[in-house]
Nucleic acid binder design. Structure first.
Lengths: 121, 121
DNA sequence: TAATTCAGTATACAAAAGTATAGCGATATA
DNA sequence: TATATCGCTATACTTTTGTATACTGAATTA
């Protein structure tokens, strides 16, 4: 992609693109989504396991964010009807592909730190 | 990068990486940063121009967010000591490279929409 | 029988983010 | 002289986001 888009480029940017970028940003929104995704990256976990994994998260927040991530197709909630029922949370296939995005974020962040703050933070 | 990292991979992830990713996320944080960056993408602008460009933003928010973006090395504030002084805001070189990140976000968002919601939103 | 675990929910509250509205000092224009 | 523009700041308020704490019902363990 060009560094500076022309005005024509900008104006022809379809609404679908804006929505898609927004979706991606939503995946990381708030204080807890990143930690939760990180916790599920290695493998699927149960509610209490995730809670133990993430210091200071309250069950209220964990519950809320898991629902949010599920609604956004990032996390899958799997119920095993054993007795007692056990519930597992896992990342979707789509979520695993987020690594491409995170890689680019890492890349930009590193170069930005180097070129802009030059070891000042 | 691999889809599923090993536990060793995860544990060896340096703190610097976490910070770098965080920096990148901060650039897009909140309701107005994306529109502001978008507004400056085509060319530099003055305070009131940006305000006219972004519907419903209040001067308080614009001022706050511009300061924030400046502190984060994304926007540069240039003062011309003409009479009266005019102030222009422009993206830094580093900020222009954000297009790489946004591209990936777009890519993921589009595939995610297609594979997950199949034209349901 | 009593305490513990699981997978959460309910309620109240505090803090952060965003909005609404008015105003300022300096200049410029009618 | 009166009004408008520029680049903001100040104050008060609302909304959203996150925290603290307690609790639930079903099952399990001591």
């Amino acid at each position: 992609m060009k560094l500076k888009p022309s005005l024509k480029d900008v104006k022809s940017c379809p609404m679908q693109y804006v929505l898609a970028i927004n979706d991606t940003l939503n995946v990381f929104n708030g204080k807890w989504k990143m930690p939760i995704i990180g916790s599920l990256l290695f493998d699927k976990k149960r509610f209490t396991e995730i809670q133990r994994n993430i210091p200071n998260i309250t069950p209220r927040m964990l519950s809320k964010e898991l629902k949010d991530l599920e609604a956004n197709g990032v996390v899958r909630r799997v119920v095993y009807d054993s007795i007692p029922v056990s519930v597992e949370y896992e990342l979707t296939e789509s979520a695993l592909l987020l690594s491409d995005v995170v890689d680019k974020m890492l890349e930009w962040g590193l170069q930005h730190r180097k070129s802009t703050f030059n070891s000042k933070r």
